[in-house]
């Protein structure tokens, strides 16, 4: 598995974990409170910040983990492929860029569809709570779909 594919897995997992945590927190806050009074702002900002920080930290951790794991495997087993995997850490080539571009395009379509829904909510004068959360979920879903599309393309080729 290439380094870029591993970081794509990290991004997908972070998106899923953060979105689940955020929606759980906000659902808890909604119990017995009118949505207009739910203080979703702070958890939303934390969720956005956590996604960015965890994705970056995950990529760094993946690089370190791959380098150490491959070096240890190469030392113990003498496997050439493990040694080569160390050299691939952090390396991005044309195929990675092509896959990233395809995945991001698919994710963009999903996010855009979500944004159309957000526009509809705004036009129908829904509460800011629904508009902000629909927007967050649109981007989260777009990011997740982009990551899944990249992983599928890495596996199946194109």
């Amino acid at each position: 598995m290439s380094f870029e594919e591993k970081t794509t897995w990290v991004a997908a997992l972070v998106t899923v974990i953060v979105t689940i945590c955020y929606t759980s927190v906000v659902r808890g806050m909604m119990v017995g409170v009118p949505v207009a009074e739910v203080a979703y702002q702070k958890p939303l900002l934390i969720a956005v910040g956590a996604t960015i920080v965890m994705t970056v930290m995950g990529a760094i951790g993946t690089a370190i983990g791959t380098a150490i794991g491959s070096a240890v495997t190469a030392e113990i087993t003498g496997e050439r492929s493990a040694e080569d995997a160390v050299g691939d850490v952090g390396r991005t080539d044309q195929r990675d860029k092509d896959i990233s571009r395809r995945g991001e395009l698919i994710g963009y379509y999903v996010s855009s569809a979500g944004v159309v829904g957000v526009l509809a909510l705004a036009m129908l004068r829904y509460d800011q709570f629904w508009i902000a959360n629909a927007l967050y979920l649109s981007f989260a879903l777009g990011t997740l779909v982009a990551s899944v599309a990249k992983i599928v393309t890495y596996r199946r080729g194109f």
């Binding site: 598995m1 290439s2 380094f3 594919e5 050439r80 492929s81 040694e83 080569d84 995997a85 050299g87 691939d88 390396r91 991005t92 080539d93 044309q94 195929r95 990675d96 199946r156 080729g157 194109f158």
Partner: peptide
């Protein structure tokens, strides 16, 4: 080795594997 070829073409080993297996068509330049 695939790694040696990858180094000489400046791509990852996974890209050479994907090309060999017919899972990726390289650019004309590559």
């Amino acid at each position: 080795t695939q790694a040696e070829l990858a180094d000489r073409v400046h791509v990852t080993r996974q890209t050479i594997i994907a090309i060999e297996q017919g899972r990726y068509s390289p650019s004309l330049e590559m």
